[in-house]
Computed example of a mutant assay.
Amino acid sequence: MTDTAQRLLSSATAAFAAKGFHGTTTRDIASGAGVTPGAVYVHHKSKEDLLYCISKVGHEKTLDLVRASAGSSKDDSPVDRMAALVRNLVEWQAVNHTSSRVVNFELPALSDEHLAEVLQMRHQVEDEFRSIVDDGLKQGVFNVPDANMAVVTLLSLCIDVARWYRGDGRLSAAEIGEHHSLMALRLLGVDNL
């Protein structure tokens, strides 16, 4: 990727996070990247194509992180695996809160084709959570009335951090990750914390 293409992606990410997809113009993106508005179209077919690139890369990184965290040691208990998964994903969402806001909350602006591709990765992330919840229920270490609702709640707990986190807050990204991992285990009915 050229330097200009990377600057356009960075500028688009900042603009989409600040103004939303529909509130951002290609002129905003070009200005933030220090190029003329026409340069946007040299590197990307459209503003939606920029959003797709940001979203695709963000979801790929998230999926890689989730898979590594969930499968770090299959010998670990579901409690340990879920704690690591939530801790790592929350910290990632916090550290990358600007791009995560775009990746997680601007999906409706994607074309149907691009949205389908991104949703497939989101379902794979969900599957990793579901696998650990199912293992914990089978082993009797989790106690929830509805496994699917537990997964949706856990994902919301992790992803929503990008909506409110700011780097100058009382807690660091790592501390919030640790806090959320404990809350996740409580949500799953783990008693011995």
Score class of each variant (00 low, 15 high):
Asn143Pro: 02
Leu65Ile: 01
Asp3Cys: 05
Thr98Gly: 01
Arg7Ile: 02
Asp28Gly: 06
Thr153Phe: 06
Asp168Asn: 14
Val35Phe: 04
Thr36Tyr: 10
Ala109Val: 06
Phe16Asn: 01
Leu193Ile: 14
Glu60His: 13
Val57Asn: 10
Leu8Gln: 05
Leu157Asp: 08
Pro108Cys: 09
Pro108Gln: 07
Pro78Ile: 05
Arg67Ile: 01
Ala109Lys: 04
Val161His: 01
Ser181Asp: 07
His44Lys: 10
Met149Glu: 13
Ala162His: 00
Val133His: 02
Gln124Lys: 13
Leu119Pro: 02
Ser100Ala: 07
Arg130Thr: 12
Glu106Gln: 15
Gly169Leu: 11
Pro78Val: 06
Thr98Ala: 03
Thr26Asn: 12
Ile159Thr: 14
His179Trp: 13
Ala83Phe: 04
Glu48Ile: 07
Asp28Ser: 06
Pro108Ser: 08
Thr62Asp: 02
Pro145Asp: 14
Leu137Phe: 05
Asp146Asn: 15
Val103Lys: 10
Arg186Asp: 12
Val144Ala: 07
Gly167Arg: 11
Val90Pro: 00
Ser181Thr: 08
Leu65Pro: 00
Ala39Asp: 05
Gly34Leu: 03
Leu188Trp: 07
Phe129Gln: 00
His59Cys: 07
Glu113Ala: 13
Arg67Asp: 01
Lys56Ser: 13
Leu171Trp: 15
Leu119Glu: 15
Lys47Tyr: 08
Gly136Ile: 11
Pro145Phe: 10
His180Glu: 03
Ser72Val: 11
Val144Asp: 09
His22Gly: 08
Gly177Ile: 03
Gln6Glu: 13
Ser172Gln: 11
Gln6Arg: 14
Ala173Phe: 12
Trp164Arg: 04
Val79Asp: 03
Asp134Cys: 05
Ala39Cys: 09
Arg130Trp: 08
Leu51Asn: 08
Val90Arg: 00
Ala84Leu: 15
Gly169Met: 13
Lys47Ile: 09
Leu182Tyr: 09
Ala12Thr: 08
Thr36Ile: 05
Gln120His: 13
Leu50Ile: 14
Ala30Ile: 12
Met183Phe: 05
Ser72Arg: 09
Phe105Met: 11
Val86Ile: 10
Val102Leu: 02
Phe105Trp: 09
Ser172Phe: 12
Asp49Leu: 08
Phe21Asn: 00
Val95Pro: 01
Phe21Pro: 00
Pro78Thr: 05
Cys158Gly: 07
Ser73Pro: 01
Met183Asp: 08
Pro145Met: 06
Val42Met: 14
Arg101Phe: 00
Gly177Phe: 05
Ala12Glu: 04
Ala18Thr: 07
Gly177Pro: 08
Val40Lys: 05
Trp92Tyr: 14
Val90Ala: 08
Ser69Gly: 00
Leu154Glu: 11
Thr4Gly: 03
Met149Lys: 14
Thr25Pro: 00
Asp64Glu: 08
Asn104Ile: 05
Arg166Ser: 13
